[in-house]
Amino acid sequence: MAIVKNDSVIEQDWITVDAEGDLPSSDENLIVPLARFKEERDTLLGRNGGLGVQLNPGDAPEDLADDLDRLSIITVNFPAYTDGRGYSYGRVLRERMGFKGELRAIGDVLRDQILYMHRCGFDSYDLKVDGETALTKVRAALKEMSVYYQPTGDGRATAQSLRERRRATLG
């Protein structure tokens, strides 16, 4: 298991808790499922440690609208790589709701989906391989393509914008 963010392997310094069970001490950095966040919002926001929320397929990212600036991280679970709902959640969180914190893909995160995740606003990836392998995979995935047709919030220039720029230059 290794998490890759910003072209490096980072430490897992978040504790993810289930829907039920005791919360760890107030100083720990904590990630809770959305359902629990909604139920225990005030308690959770009153703790000292950092707070994050995990979105599962079927959750509505819009439920976090009032609290985004209090969250350091949102994890989006891809229980199977074929379940693509998380891509929409990423774009809604970044492009519509303006979430600035860490957006991490967890679950069945495979090399060949990472570029799509990145384009949808994810900036960290939890892979089920060792750190060096994970870093190699993420690097390879992110540079596999260099032309993009769709405008998304990832800031990459689209083919269309480059064409327009070229037409303008040529007058």
Partner: peptide
Amino acid sequence: WSTFHPEFTY
């Protein structure tokens, strides 16, 4: 628009 649409590939 639909080719490698990052959001709509799965």
